[in-house]
Amino acid sequence: MDISVKTFKIVSTLEAISFLVLLGIAMPLKYIWDMPQMVRVVGMAHGILFIAYIIGAYLMKEKLNWSWGTLAIVMLCSVLPFGPFYAEKKYL
């Protein structure tokens, strides 16, 4: 399976945005205004994008000859708000 850097950047950006929407919009709607529907929708989209990001990061390791340490940092960035934006700027 081959993935381009451009495709990984798109997945990375979408994953970051979905995480921020989940944390900043969907979670407050659920816990403050008792509207859990948004968490279901955004949470599912974010979950799929998160898995695509992790797989894409591994494929980028192979393609760009990243060290295991670089891969670990890029994967760690996936669980931090704004992390994928940092990984994109620094490693791609």
Rank of each mutant, 00 (worst) to 15 (best):
D2Q: 13
D2C: 10
D2V: 11
D2N: 15
I3V: 11
I3T: 14
S4D: 00
V5H: 10
K6M: 03
T7A: 09
F8L: 04
I10R: 10
I10S: 10
V11D: 13
S12G: 06
S12Y: 00
S12D: 03
S12W: 01
T13F: 14
E15K: 03
A16F: 00
A16M: 00
A16W: 02
S18H: 01
F19V: 12
F19N: 15
F19L: 11
L20I: 03
L20V: 01
V21K: 08
V21Q: 09
L22D: 08
L22M: 08
L23H: 08
G24R: 09
G24H: 14
G24K: 09
G24F: 03
A26E: 06
L29T: 08
L29P: 12
I32F: 04
I32G: 15
W33K: 07
D34N: 15
D34R: 15
P36V: 11
M38A: 08
V39C: 05
V39W: 03
V39M: 14
V39H: 13
V41I: 04
V41W: 05
V42K: 07
G43H: 15
G43K: 14
M44W: 10
A45N: 11
A45T: 06
G47Q: 04
G47M: 01
G47P: 01
I48M: 09
L49P: 01
F50G: 03
F50V: 01
A52C: 08
Y53N: 12
I55H: 13
I55F: 14
G56K: 05
G56T: 06
G56I: 05
Y58N: 07
L59G: 01
M60F: 04
K61G: 10
E62H: 11
K63D: 15
L64S: 14
L64W: 07
L64D: 07
N65M: 12
W66N: 07
S67V: 00
W68C: 15
G69H: 12
T70F: 09
L71G: 01
L71S: 04
A72D: 07
A72M: 05
M75H: 02
M75K: 00
C77Q: 00
C77H: 02
S78K: 05
S78P: 12
P81I: 01
F82D: 10
F82A: 08
G83I: 00
P84D: 05
F85K: 04
F85S: 12
Y86H: 06
Y86Q: 13
Y86S: 03
Y86P: 02
Y86L: 09
A87Q: 03
E88S: 15
K89F: 06
K90M: 02
Y91E: 15
